[in-house]
Write a protein that binds this DNA or RNA. Structure first.
Lengths: 199, 199
DNA sequence: GTCTATAGGCAGATAGAC
DNA sequence: GTCTATCTGCCTATAGAC
C-alpha cells in the first residue's frame, strides 16, 4: 500500500506532507499552494513556512518520503514473494493501489512538470525511477534464469518498459478509466512485457 | 511528424497556438502564463486576450488543433502502410518525433493536470485518447486476422496498453532518457505488446 | 510553533484609446 | 487588432509579536 499517503504518526511535519502529497498527486506541484494546505489543516501559511521554508523544500521532502515508502514496499515484496512472476503482480498492485485512491504516482506526476522543478527535486525524481528499475531488473533477471519469464533484450530495458507502462496507464487512466479495470490492466501489461510463462 | 507544432501559416492565432503548444508540452498548462506567450511574440497580454478571451479557450483550441493533426497523421499512416506491423512502427515513430523535439505529448501532459482543467478541455482530452485507441484497435484486429500479430485479450484493451506504454515512456523518459534510445525503446514496447510475429 | 500583518510580484482578465 | 493602463486576486515569502 505504498504511496497512498497513510498518516504516519501525529507529527505536524507529517500532517503537512500528507496533505501536500495528496494535492500533488491529484493536481500537480504547480496546481496547489500553501494556502490550500493551510486551509485544510486550519493553520496559517506562515506556520507552514516554519516547517518547510520554501516550496522547493516541501517538494523535496515529499519525494524523499514517497521514495522511502516505495523502497520499503519493494523490500517487503522481495521478502514475501520468492517467485518472480508473483513479485511482478505485487509490483503492479502497488500502482493499482495508488490509482484506486484516485491519485497519480507522485513521481510520475512530477515527471510531467519536470522542466519547471528545482534541481534538488529533479535529482530525487531520477533517483526514484532508478531504484524502481533496478529492483525490477533484478526480478526479471532471476525470472529469466529460472525459466518463469521470457523476454528479449536486457533486464534493464525491459524494466524501464514496465515502469513506463504502469506510469502511462495511470496517466491515461485518470482521464479515461474507472478504477475497476485498472488493476487487471496493470497486471496484464506487466505480464505481457515480462513474458510471464503460463503453467 | 504530428504533434511537433510546425508553424501552419502566418496567422496570428496560429502563432499564438504554436508558442502556447510548446509551452504546454514542456511546462504544463499550469506552468505557463499569457505573459510568457506575449514576451515571446513581442505583443501584449491584452492582445492575446483578444484572440483567446480566457485561458480555457486557448487550452481547448490547443487540444482541438493537436488532435486534428494527430488524426491526419493516423490517416496518412493508414494510407501509406498496409502492413499492421509497419503501421505500428509508424505509430511509435509519431511519439518518438515528439520526444525528439524535447516535448511531452500535449494530451499526455494535460492528462496529468486533468483534475485542474475546465470541463471542455477534459472532454477534448478524452476524445484524443479515444481516437487513438480506436485507430490502434482496428490495426490490431487486422493484424491478428492476417496472422502478423498475436496477442491475448481484446484489441481495444491491447490498444489501450500501447497508448499507455508510449505515453508513459515519454513521461518517464523526460526525466531519465536521452532522445537517442527512445525511438528504439518505443518500437520495442509496441512490438512486444502487440505480439509482432518475426519473419 | 503558531499567529497577525504585510511585502512584492505575478496571475488572468477588462476598459477604452488608437 | 493592438496598445496602455488598471483591477482584483492569489502566489511565495518574511518580520516580529505571543
Amino acid at each position: 500500500m505504498a504511496g497512498t499517503g497513510a498518516q504516519t504518526d501525529g507529527g505536524t511535519d507529517a500532517s503537512i506532507l500528507d496533505v501536500a502529497e495528496r494535492l500533488v498527486q491529484t493536481r500537480g506541484f504547480n496546481g496547489f499552494s500553501y494556502a490550500d494546505i493551510a486551509q485544510e489543516l486550519s493553520v496559517t501559511k506562515a506556520s507552514l513556512h516554519y516547517h518547510y521554508p520554501g516550496k522547493a523544500d516541501l517538494g523535496r521532502a515529499l519525494i524523499d518520503r514517497y521514495a522511502e515508502r516505495f523502497a520499503d514496499s519493494l523490500a517487503a515484496i522481495g521478502a514475501a514473494e520468492p517467485s518472480p512472476s508473483r513479485a511482478l503482480d505485487a509490483y503492479a498492485n502497488l500502482y493499482a493501489d495508488v490509482f484506486a485512491a484516485h491519485r497519480m504516482c507522485l513521481c510520475g506526476m512530477l515527471a510531467a512538470e519536470y522542466e519547471t522543478l528545482p534541481d534538488p527535486m529533479q535529482e530525487a525524481i531520477r533517483g526514484f525511477f532508478d531504484v524502481n528499475e533496478a529492483w525490477l531488473a533484478e526480478v526479471l533477471t532471476r525470472g529469466r534464469r529460472d525459466g518463469s519469464l521470457a523476454f528479449a533484450g536486457s533486464s534493464r530495458e525491459t524494466a524501464r518498459g514496465i515502469v513506463a507502462g504502469l506510469e502511462g496507464a495511470m496517466l491515461v487512466g485518470r482521464a479515461t478509466d474507472g478504477p475497476a479495470g485498472f488493476r487487471a490492466a496493470a497486471r496484464r501489461l506487466v505480464r505481457r512485457l515480462a513474458g510471464v510463462q503460463t503453467g
